[in-house]
């Protein structure tokens, strides 16, 4: 991500240190991860210590400090999905992709995350890939869904 674009985002938020999280969210949304250089640039422009930027970037779940795969898998671990068997869906995805939540595979194909609740409880257990919701998942259907991505 180029320096000018980051500066634009910082300017949009009036270089206000209290907008630090909002700035990081904007960069994350555009770039899908937060490179170290971007964090340093923000720290300098906002006059906020790097320790604080680093704490925020690792504290909130929305941020990633490493590049993400082409397809983002979100498995809902909300209570409704949990009681309907979400952990079996997770086991299946882990088995098929070889990665655990928070990880990205070596081919940068999939990134796997668990999320707290997607609020689609009627469809639980729910699996979301690149924003598309797949409902009422069981291990077999999960495997079928994953086959459609490369």
């Amino acid at each position: 991500m180029d320096k000018e674009r980051i500066d634009q985002i910082i300017d949009k938020h009036h270089s206000d240190p209290s907008s630090l999280i909002q700035i990081l969210l904007d960069i994350q949304a555009e770039h899908h991860w937060l490179p170290k250089e971007a964090l340093e640039q923000i720290s300098e422009r906002l006059q906020v210590p790097m320790t604080r930027v680093q704490h925020i970037a690792t504290f909130y779940k929305a941020f990633s400090l490493v590049p993400k795969g082409r397809h983002q898998i979100h498995i809902c671990m909300g209570t409704a999905c949990h009681v309907r068997g979400a952990s079996r869906v997770l086991d299946t995805v882990e088995g098929l992709t070889g990665i655990k939540p928070g990880e990205t595979d070596l081919d940068l194909k999939f990134s796997l995350e668990t999320v707290n609740c997607l609020g689609c409880c009627a469809l639980g257990p729910v699996l979301e890939i690149d924003g598309k919701t797949h409902g009422k998942m069981a291990p077999v259907q999960t495997a079928d869904v994953l086959k459609n991505y490369d």
Binding site: I21, L24, Y60, K61
Partner: peptide, 8 residues
């Protein structure tokens, strides 16, 4: 509006 970045 302030967006929360994911922390219960």
């Amino acid at each position: 509006v302030h967006q929360g970045a994911g922390a219960f």
